[in-house]
Write a protein that binds this DNA or RNA. Structure first.
Lengths: 137, 137
DNA sequence: TTTAAACTCTACTACTCATATATAATTACT
DNA sequence: AGTAATTATATATGAGTAGTAGAGTTTAAA
């Protein structure tokens, strides 16, 4: 399941994607439109900025805007930024690999191979869902 | 990501699936073989019993055994029993549907449709992974 | 019938993480 | 200078995860 943070991030990105190009949206407007607690949204937008998905402008008439186009931002990207691995166990993850502490011999693990299959399927589906594809629905 | 509980449950089921038919395994043996804390495993096996995946025999020489054959137990089943919904948000879930509190009009939600697509893909993959398919690898 | 070995059940604890909130600082435009 | 916005850090809190403890119940063998 997605965390609230990831859900809010997606909603904020969807909001930004629906604005005119070059339009700068302030946090307050995004928060109201997408029904997100404002201070929480600030954190999320900062994270999105660090991930180079949005840019910001400070001061009066400042705010946030998309840095990439909607079809360059996939669900997989946002999931990884906020919720981390897409695989069901760290040992089956591409970007967040970690050994299981209870695993004596990974090569003998019956679980891992199946979980990597799931990961590939899920990842493929998640890469197909982009901010643009969601807006054009 | 899977919880430890789900991972342990899968490992326990894999262990049981590898025993001779009619063999009854005691918790201690499963715990040692699969490297699972025994008291924690007891809880998990009880949950699996309530889910009708395993049966038990009490008393001396008692223990646990598979109630269904390995190809009748899917990853989706076990995920739902321990970790709940397979969908990324409750509003996109088949078995654990719940409205989002921050959603004003579900039919207008741009996110939901895409998440249901992911759910269908993931679910299909998770139903294909069975205890039997994992053992025969 | 006693006893050991197993499951059953409830409650509890320690810890981590998610979800925010609060406050102060910085920046930029007018 | 004043205002309105982002940026940063710290804190609060509630829920969930992972695991432990202990008493009770059932069964089968001796």
């Amino acid at each position: 399941m997605l965390s609230q943070k990831t859900k809010y991030a997606l909603k904020a990105l969807l909001y930004l994607a629906q604005q005119d190009v070059n339009h700068i949206s302030k946090t307050t407007d995004i928060a109201e439109a997408a029904n997100i607690p404002k201070k929480f949204l600030e954190q999320i937008l900062l994270d999105l900025k660090r991930g180079h998905f949005v840019g910001s402008k400070q001061g009066k008439y400042g705010g946030y805007y998309l840095l990439k186009s909607g079809n360059e931002i996939t669900l997989a990207d946002i999931h990884r930024l906020f919720d981390g691995a897409i695989a069901l166990l760290p040992c089956a993850s591409l970007n967040f690999y970690e050994r299981c502490s209870d695993c004596t011999d990974e090569s003998e693990c019956l679980l891992r191979h199946g979980l990597m299959t799931i990961r590939d399927e899920t990842l493929k589906a998640m890469k197909d869902i982009t901010i643009a594809s969601l807006v054009n629905k």
